[in-house]
Design a protein around this nucleic acid. Structure first.
Length: 276
DNA sequence: TCCTTATGTACAA
DNA sequence: TGTACCTAAGGAC
C-alpha cells in the first residue's frame, strides 16, 4: 500500500526494530540482492530515512540500501520474542531482502528498487524529488513555482514526484475532491490560495495516514454515521470520497463518481462537486 | 485454476 | 503512448 505515508512508517519501523547497533543477519533469499546482502551481512543498521516514496536504510560507511516499493512491494515484520508462537515464516522464495536478529526479522518482497548506493547517489535521488509533505524540511514554494508555470493538469502534477514527493493515486484524487478542484485544471490556473490549502491538507492527511497506517480522508461531518447512512469501509481499509468509487454515489451530492485514464492511472472525481 | 487488478516508475519509440 | 517489471489478493470459473 505504498504512498508516502507507508514509506515514512516503514522508515520508523525499521529504525525502532533494528537500531541502534545490533549486528544483523542480512540476506537475499530470492537472490537478486545477494551480492550486496553479503557485503552488509553482520553489520548494524545505523539510521533510516524516507523521502517521498523512497526509503533509505543507512549502514554507515557501507552506504545505503535504497528501496522503492513500486506498485507491489511490501515489507513484513515479525518479532518472535513476544509472541508465544512465531507465525510460520511465509515462503522465502520471493524475499528480496531479509534483515534478521535472533528474535526478529523484516522481509522485503516485490520492490521495484533495492540497491546499495553511496551518499552521493542517495543525494542525487533526493535532488530529483519535490518537497515531501511528511518532511519537516519541505518547501511548498518549490512545488508552487512548478505548478504555476505548467499547462499540465493539476491531477498529473500532483502525481509527478519531481513536483511533490509522496503523493500517489489515492491522495491525489482525495485532496482534489476535498478542495472542490476539477482534476483537469491546468497547473497555471491553480490560485495561490488553492495551492496553500492543498499543501496544508496533504501535510495533515498524510501525517494522519502515517499514524493510522491507512488513508482516511472523509471529514467527520461526512462520515456515513453523520450523514445517516449505513457504515462502510472501502476495499483498501480506509474511508474515502472518490478513489475506486466509480459509478457509486458521491457522499456529498449523490451524483455518480466518474473515472478516466490519466497518464496510465485511474483518475476518480465527482463532476458536480469538482467544477471547472 | 486462471484472469484481473493494484496506493509505481522507467524507458523506448 | 506503450510496455516492461515486480507480487499477491480477489473474483470468476
Amino acid at each position: 500500500m505504498p504512498e508516502g505515508h507507508t514509506i515514512h512508517r516503514l522508515a520508523h519501523e525499521y529504525a525502532t526494530r533494528f537500531t541502534p547497533g545490533k549486528p544483523l543477519q542480512i540476506t537475499s533469499p530470492q537472490g537478486k540482492f545477494a551480492d550486496s546482502a553479503a557485503l552488509l551481512d553482520t553489520r548494524p543498521l545505523t539510521t533510516t530515512e524516507a523521502h517521498g516514496k523512497h526509503l533509505f536504510l543507512g549502514f554507515g560507511p557501507l552506504g545505503w540500501v535504497h528501496i522503492h516499493l513500486g506498485l507491489f512491494g511490501k515489507v513484513a515484520f515479525e518479532n518472535t520474542e513476544s509472541g508465544s508462537t512465531a507465525k510460520a515464516a511465509p515462503k522465502p522464495d520471493t524475499v528480496r531482502l531479509r534483515l534478521a536478529t535472533p528474535t526478529a526479522w523484516a522481509d522485503l518482497r516485490g520492490p521495484t528498487t533495492c540497491t546499495l548506493i553511496t551518499d552521493a547517489e542517495k543525494q542525487a535521488v533526493q535532488d530529483r524529488l519535490g518537497p515531501d509533505p511528511l518532511r519537516a524540511d519541505a518547501d511548498p514554494d518549490r512545488a508552487r513555482r512548478r505548478i504555476a508555470a505548467s499547462r499540465t493538469t493539476i491531477a498529473a502534477l500532483l502525481m509527478d514526484q519531481k513536483v511533490v514527493a509522496g503523493v500517489g493515486n489515492v491522495y491525489r484524487a482525495e485532496v482534489l475532491f476535498r478542495h472542490g478542484i476539477d482534476p483537469y485544471t491546468p497547473g497555471r490556473d491553480i490560485t495561490d490560495a488553492q495551492w496553500a490549502a492543498l499543501w496544508q491538507d496533504l501535510v495533515d492527511l498524510m501525517h494522519e495516514g502515517v499514524r493510522l497506517n491507512r488513508i482516511d480522508t472523509v471529514r467527520p461531518e461526512h462520515t456515513p454515521e453523520a450523514m445517516g447512512r449505513p457504515p462502510r469501509r472501502d476495499d483498501h481499509g480506509g474511508e474515502v470520497y472518490v478513489y475506486r468509487r466509480a459509478t457509486l454515489p458521491c457522499h456529498l451530492c449523490g451524483g455518480e463518481i466518474r473515472t478516466a485514464d490519466l497518464a496510465a492511472r485511474n483518475l476518480f472525481w465527482c463532476p458536480t462537486c469538482q467544477q471547472p
